[in-house]
Design a binder for these strands. Structure first.
Length: 406
DNA sequence: TGTCCACTGGAAGGGAGGGCTT
DNA sequence: AAGCCCTCCCTTCCAGTGGACA
């Protein structure tokens, strides 16, 4: 099909989308089905703010896609609206710590969100930024709510220094007040925190349980009605998407992704209705894209280690151990002319890959034969290989070691 | 029952990339 | 330009360890 034909085909059909934005990650709908309880709880906690008080800090737990972020954004939106009516000002800063794993970067993001002016990604001392934030916040009498999403990533990689500072920020403020909302999907996360931080941060806590298939269906139905033109989405497709997402830990975000991608596929194929087959295709595509993007963006050394794991898995029989990976990795480095990193570093890289969900690893004792990590590849081999095959160097290595999919 | 393997993972620090202030 | 401070990726050093085997 030529490019012109592709365009012609697309234009000859009317789009099935009415408002695609509704299916994007940062869209917050006017109603959040099946989260009424959580919304109410958070509203109670934050309501103090309307009387000029400082709401307690809140900790929200729950797996990904259980509506934590959405609930927070929703309640804050309402709070802001109500505040405006009665002449109270609220400001809030949303920081996703998954992408900002250092204390400094989190502070920079808070600055950005609160419009404290431009701050470079590196260079300034952390306490300077902190002072700047304090000064900026304290200019007016107001409540500032700082939302720290996926907090576990920050604490695991950089400790809880910033959290400690933030929990004590109110001591330094004269006019303004700060409340914190910490969001995490790691339920065991509390163990990593200093007890002072923990007690201050979890004055209140809200637990989010995963959605089941029925609830996911309701959510999808709501979004589909807004996103697609009437009658263009089959009910079976929605139920299938809900069932798939329910299997994957009740992740609503994944369910919505599925719906969006399925819509795009249907459109691409010139279909006028979104059907189950599109959802099935979308499932593969969403998974593939996710893994491929992660693997592609990995730093060089992490890619090399992953390549080694993949090779041990395809070639070898039985378990993948750190020692085995190290040997293979060193061979690859020799082949490509890179200087290999040390064992200690390999260990950290393995932990990184585990955090990303590409592998899982368990420290196992083999008795006489020592103690090692036993590694499992969690991501589909095909997706990883696809990325490597596209790279000239890596595909060369794959070939010279005679690795292929089968 | 103790030994000892093959690691694990904490601590400290370095150096290349950057940017700030003076 | 000097003197700090930041990040990221990495090194060196090292104490600690679960359990098969002698």
């Amino acid at each position: 099909m030529s490019v012109d034909e592709i365009f012609d085909k697309l234009l000859s059909h009317e789009s099935i989308f009415k408002n695609k934005k509704v299916l994007s990650h940062d869209y917050v709908p006017d109603e959040l089905p099946h989260r009424e309880g959580e919304i109410r709880k958070l509203a109670y906690i934050l309501a103090t703010a309307l009387r000029g008080g400082k709401p307690s800090n809140v900790f929200m737990y729950g797996k990904t896609g259980t509506g934590k972020t959405a609930v927070a954004r929703y309640v804050l939106k309402k709070l802001t609206e109500r505040g405006e009516k009665i002449g109270l000002e609220f400001a809030y800063a949303y920081v996703n710590c998954r992408y900002r794993k250092t204390n400094y970067r989190v502070l920079v993001k808070i600055c950005e969100e609160l419009n404290c002016g431009n701050i470079p990604e590196t260079g300034l001392p952390a306490d300077v930024i902190f002072d700047r934030i304090i000064k900026h916040i304290d200019k007016k009498e107001r409540l500032v709510i700082i939302i720290l999403d996926e907090l576990d990533w920050l604490v695991k990689s950089s400790g809880d220094d910033v959290l400690y500072q933030l929990t004590r920020i109110n001591n330094e403020l004269e006019n303004a007040q700060v409340s914190l909302i910490g969001i995490t999907n790691d339920l065991k996360f509390r163990e990593y925190l200093d007890s002072r931080v923990l007690s201050s941060l979890s004055e209140e806590s809200i637990v989010f349980s995963p959605y089941n298939a029925h609830q996911l269906y309701d959510i999808l139905k709501q979004r589909a009605d807004m996103a697609f033109k009437e009658g263009t989405v089959s009910d079976e497709a929605l139920r299938l998407a809900a069932a798939i997402a329910a299997q994957e830990h009740g992740d609503a975000r994944r369910a919505i992704d599925l719906l969006r991608v399925a819509g795009e596929i249907a459109e691409r194929e010139g279909d006028t209705k979104l059907l189950e087959k599109h959802i099935i295709k979308a499932k593969d595509e969403v998974e593939k894209d996710l893994i491929e993007a992660i693997v592609r963006d990995l730093p060089l050394q992490e890619q090399l280690i992953l390549l080694a794991i993949v090779m041990v898995k395809t070639k070898g029989n039985g378990r993948i151990t750190t020692g085995l990976v190290k040997k293979t990795y060193e061979n690859i480095c020799a082949e490509l002319g890179y200087r290999p990193v040390t064992l200690r570093r390999i260990n950290d890289i393995l932990s990184d890959l585990e955090m990303l969900g590409i592998i899982s690893a368990q420290v196992t004792s083999l008795g006489r034969y020592g103690r090692t990590k036993v590694i499992n590849l969690e991501a589909p081999l095909r997706s990883i290989l696809k990325v490597f095959e596209r790279d000239e160097n890596f595909s060369h290595v794959l070939e010279s070691f005679k690795i292929n999919e089968h």
